[in-house]
């Protein structure tokens, strides 16, 4: 029973991170594209408001992913965030600045003030996109923690070739996702540029995917699980199908479907990596015995069952009302919307 719960929670843990990447991914990508696509003040405001009603709710998925790590795998939570101390705090500071840039930018009538916050907005979206990739690539590969949970490395150690590849990979993945979102939420010239950006990013993404898979082969042991359980190869195929689907739907002008396919791609990529780690959650590159797994780092059966009950009830409810909110704000942002006193 305990073992089943541990496996279920491992899957849910991966799912929460995947949903976080899908949802916050598009607004992080959108913000990283601000200097490229936001030519005029109106363009930039449309880009802010395209993420406007969503970014805050999306970020709660990060809080949930963190909270669930704490609740279901407290030892993983403790070691993961103390080992990744510097990058995590960097990520959190960036997210603080991002939130503030949304809120403060439009509050003072001055081009210099807005330009300052545009710069902050760009950097504070770019940095988390890259850091999340760097962090997860390093988790896939394993990090130098000992049996006491003490980390024997530093921030520069995370910026190894594979970690950097993960950073670039995530950034482009989020930018593609974000440009598709902007295409949905804009009209006219800006929409055309968003579409062109998505078309430009797509082949880059495909190349990066192949490079990343190749590097994964040589830098990590993720594929061990795949050869032990060949059925798992479906996961990278799902990712690939999502990526190809995004391209097909983009050509066909079915933007919502293109965005959904891009989301499926992100879910596929996340599950590809995490399934390769299973049952490992913090893989120790120093000593295999120090690796934290779903089995040796979990909460008790009682806590896991209570939390499963909470998750089974609450997560569907959350998904329903968040989808409803997406439905309300589904229309493109227009010049008329920008005149509203509540717009960013």
């Amino acid at each position: 029973m305990l073992e089943t719960l541990q496996i279920v929670w491992f899957i849910l843990w991966a799912l929460l991170w995947a949903v976080y990447f899908v949802l916050d991914g598009f607004d992080l990508g959108l913000g990283s594209l601000l200097p490229c696509l936001g030519k005029s003040e109106e363009d930039r405001r449309i880009m802010y408001n395209a993420a406007g009603p969503f970014w805050d709710g999306n970020e709660v998925w990060l809080i949930s992913a963190g909270g669930v790590t704490f609740a279901a795998f407290p030892t993983v939570y403790a070691v993961m965030f103390s080992a990744l101390y510097a990058p995590l705090l960097l990520l959190l500071f960036a997210l603080i600045f991002r939130a503030v840039s949304f809120e403060f930018r439009g509050k003072v009538e001055s081009a210099a003030w807005r330009g300052f916050w545009d710069l902050i907005h760009f950097v504070s979206n770019l940095v988390p996109s890259i850091l999340l990739g760097v962090a997860f690539a390093n988790l896939f590969m394993g990090i130098p923690v000992d049996a006491e949970g003490v980390y024997h490395g530093n921030l520069l150690g995370l910026l190894n070739p594979y970690g950097l590849a993960g950073g670039v990979f995530f950034l482009v993945m989020f930018m593609l996702h974000g440009s598709l979102w902007l295409a949905i939420k804009s009209e006219g010239d800006l929409q055309l540029r968003a579409l062109a950006t998505a078309s430009l990013l797509w082949p880059i993404m495909l190349v990066l995917l192949l490079v990343f898979l190749g590097m994964t082969w040589s830098y990590t042991r993720l594929f061990d699980n795949y050869f032990a359980q060949p059925a798992l190869f479906l996961l990278p195929l799902v990712a690939l199908a999502g990526l190809v689907g995004a391209r097909v739907m983009l050509r066909a002008g079915r933007l919502w479907l293109a965005w959904a396919c891009s989301g499926l791609y992100i879910v596929g990529v996340t599950f590809f990596g995490v399934s390769g780690m299973f049952p490992g959650m913090i893989i120790s590159s120093l000593d295999p015995a120090a690796t934290l797994t779903a089995y040796n780092a979990s909460s008790t059966e009682l806590t896991l069952s209570i939390m499963l009950g909470v998750a089974l009830v609450m997560v569907p409810i959350v998904l329903i009302y968040q989808s409803w909110a997406y439905h309300i704000f589904r229309k493109p942002v227009t010049g008329e919307d920008l005149k509203d006193e509540h717009a960013y």
Binding site: S64, G67, T69, V310
Partner: peptide, 10 residues
């Protein structure tokens, strides 16, 4: 941890 996780989801 479970109390914090419930706070977020609920």
């Amino acid at each position: 941890g479970s109390l914090l996780a419930i706070e977020a989801t609920v």
